[in-house]
């Protein structure tokens, strides 16, 4: 269905996705899980042709997303993080446009619109302007757009963000329903959501895939939350340790005498961005792992810690 090989994306010098590979098979609901700034949205944008990869390839049903873009995009419905709605249109006009762009005409178009509106329960607001609809309805219209023309694969980027609990349950039910007929890829950092709807989980952290398995296998010995914290944390530690080692190395190269014992300020560059760590205790021979375990406080502006809302490079 979807084959991703060695996919990378750099935003300028900052790598957002670092050579990931995975395969998505037919008839499953995939959870694409990762902390904020992990590269989820970047990956989804590359899968759907909204972004061109720096390296690597994406094949949708055998069609390359760059070279055979039209054929590949016919197989995909995509709801980006922010539903791409024309606010001055009504849902009816909007779906009419999307249907036409997907090659539907006349009766087929209006039948499909009816089916989609019924499925997403937006028929009763179909003649109101999109700008006047609530967030929940806007999200539904976004999903309706993604399933227009009945594509094989539906990709939803954080479809329940900003919704109230009732709306979240409704959208989850809808996703489960969609999973019966389509292959669904759902990105989220909400673990309960992934547990509630997904069959398989692909976990991404710092632009790398850290897990790609069934939900049962991942939650056999620990809860999903524990697995998530462990895997994402390991990846974060590895990144920080690497950056620390690099920074220490750079300091060693410096002709200026480095205080081998005591407090100093160093600039650490890692895949997370760059940050100044103040008052780090540096040993005679800085051990990468030990340095990473030090209790360090980030000070620089560019630092993007995990579990915050600031998206890094997305």
């Amino acid at each position: 269905m979807i084959e991703v090989k060695n996919l990378s994306k750099n935003y300028g010098p900052v790598p957002a996705v670092k050579g990931i590979s995975f395969t998505v098979k037919e008839g499953c609901i995939y959870g694409f899980l990762g902390p904020n700034g992990a590269g989820k949205s970047t990956t989804m944008n590359m899968l759907t042709g909204c972004l061109a990869p720096t390296q690597g390839e994406v094949k949708i049903n055998g069609h390359d997303i760059i070279d055979e873009a039209i054929e590949a995009k016919r197989c995909i419905g995509y709801l980006p993080e922010m539903p791409p709605l024309y606010l001055e249109m009504t849902p009816f006009e909007y779906l009419e446009f999307v249907g036409r762009a997907r090659g539907l005409k006349k009766d087929a178009l209006y039948d499909e619109m009816e089916r989609v509106m019924e499925k997403t329960k937006i028929a009763d607001v179909s003649d109101r302007l999109l700008k006047n609809l609530s967030k929940g309805y806007k999200q539904r219209v976004g999903i309706a757009q993604a399933i227009m023309g009945n594509p094989d694969i539906i990709i939803l980027d954080e479809p329940t963000v900003g919704l109230d609990p009732i709306q979240i349950i409704e959208i989850r039910d809808l996703i489960l329903e969609l999973g019966e007929e389509h292959t669904v890829i759902l990105s989220s950092h909400i673990l309960q959501e992934i547990e509630a709807v997904c069959d398989r989980v692909i976990m991404i952290s710092q632009g790398n895939i850290v897990a790609d398995d069934t939900l049962e296998a991942l939650t056999k010995d620990e809860t999903l939350e524990e697995a998530f914290v462990r895997l994402a944390g390991e990846s974060l530690d590895a990144g920080a340790a690497y950056a620390m080692a690099k920074a220490a190395e750079a300091d060693d190269d410096d002709s200026e005498p480095v205080s081998k014992k005591g407090k100093k300020k160093i600039r650490v560059e890692s895949s997370l961005g760059a940050a100044y760590y103040d008052e780090v205790y540096v040993d005679e021979e800085p051990e990468a792992e030990e340095a990473a375990d030090e209790d360090i406080e980030p000070e620089g502006e560019e630092y993007t810690p995990m579990f915050t809302d600031k998206e890094d490079g997305e």
Binding site: N45, T48, C50, R74, Y78, P80, P84, L85, G103
Partner: peptide
């Protein structure tokens, strides 16, 4: 309005 993402993802 980020609707260009829709245009990029449509088969046109």
């Amino acid at each position: 309005m980020k609707t260009d993402q829709l245009l990029y993802s449509l088969p046109i």
